[in-house]
Nucleic acid binder design. Structure first.
Lengths: 208, 208
DNA sequence: TAGATTGTTAATCGATTAACAATC
DNA sequence: TAGATTGTTAATCGATTAACAATC
């Protein structure tokens, strides 16, 4: 039950997805090599990751799927329901509101916000949209730990501050803005320009 | 001019953004520590990364911004125009079509595709939408190297195969599907469920 | 028993961090 | 000259890979 490194942590949700599938097929156990093959990973890596979940496998049989799924759901946060708010109901924001994967991951977006009056008081994908100036109050009253930021870059810092003022504990930042928040607030960037740069670099490299 | 590791590669676009800003402010040189402070990074890391671009700095002065920008644009692929097609014009797909950051990164989405007839023959954010069955032919004729995949998960594999048949060299996969493609095709996942899992894990960890 | 798979220990590799010399 | 910043070399750390023993 050691801490997982960043790379290992990224693999856990992948194991979870494959294991759930295998479980639905009625299988009770899965070996590390089966998982590795399904995900195109090195079997040794998989075994090491699985070992660190604390679940014990049995030789010749593999790991108990149900136990692994439990452990992985705990480790990836999918076990406990979590709530979030989303600020900025533009194209990306509404795409995220309608994304079914969040629910499966145990996330419920309980409120959205937008600066444009014509977007407020709507209900998008089941989530009510409120005016931007009510962020702090709503975050505080609902005790929401996570804020999703899909506003224009130039508004990002101000909206982040409103969330922080409401007591938010983590911000998922989809804007290119560099946020300045108190140290105890977790910020995770999801910067498509960065991902694209990495991808273009890989294409270039391959071309040589 | 050594190869960059995965983590270093993710930092390059961040340097590029800050350096462009400093350049717009009229400054000609920037020190590693200024960059580090702006991005909340360790100065040693920044200096090491910058050194590997091949650009030489001068003590007491810093690095020449223009040269660094050039080098970083080359390394991140922002220097050369690149084209792409996008399959699946749902919420996420149209959000990506309208994302201005891609242009800045040198990417032009020249065609989009969708299975729904009512979405075809539209022009979204300047990009024409064609029927899904024309993917292979269009990719081949336009010689497009990059395919962006924003279709439903259950269609992902088939659409990927259509792109591969057209000679695509890289696929940016926004679906949770595990794609099986020839080895020479680069696949980059952009899986929000994975990112969310990582974030929830970090929140849990911090709570202890 | 034989064979496959787990679990563990050691070796390798790469990245990060630290220390210090070089230089404008 | 003095001081700040780059550049380089060494030390540390962590993750990956390999080898092998344990076990069902």
């Amino acid at each position: 039950m050691t801490a997982f490194g960043s790379k290992a942590l990224h693999r856990l949700p992948l194991y979870l997805r494959v294991l759930r599938e295998l479980g639905r097929d009625g299988r009770s156990h899965a070996s590390g090599s089966v998982l590795a093959a399904a995900l195109g990973l090195d079997p040794i890596v998989v075994r090491k990751d699985l070992a660190r979940t604390g679940v014990r496998g049995t030789p010749r049989v593999g790991f108990p799927i149900a136990e692994l799924v439990d452990a992985l759901e705990r480790l990836t946060g999918a076990a406990s329901e979590q709530t979030a708010v989303l600020a900025g109901v533009g194209r990306l924001g509404s795409a995220l509101l309608g994304y079914p994967g969040f629910r499966r991951q145990g996330l419920r977006i309980v409120a959205a916000f937008d600066a444009a009056p014509e977007r407020c008081n709507l209900i998008l994908a089941g989530t009510p949209v409120f005016p931007a100036n009510s962020i702090t109050e709503k975050v505080m009253r609902l005790g929401v730990p996570l804020g999703i930021l899909t506003v224009p870059a130039e508004r990002a810092q101000r909206v982040a501050e409103q969330m922080v003022a409401g007591g938010i504990r983590a911000i998922w930042n989809f804007t290119p803005a560099q946020l300045e928040v108190p140290e105890e607030v977790i910020v995770q960037r999801e910067d498509l320009a960065v991902s694209l740069a990495v991808l273009l670099h890989r294409i270039q490299e391959r071309a040589d």
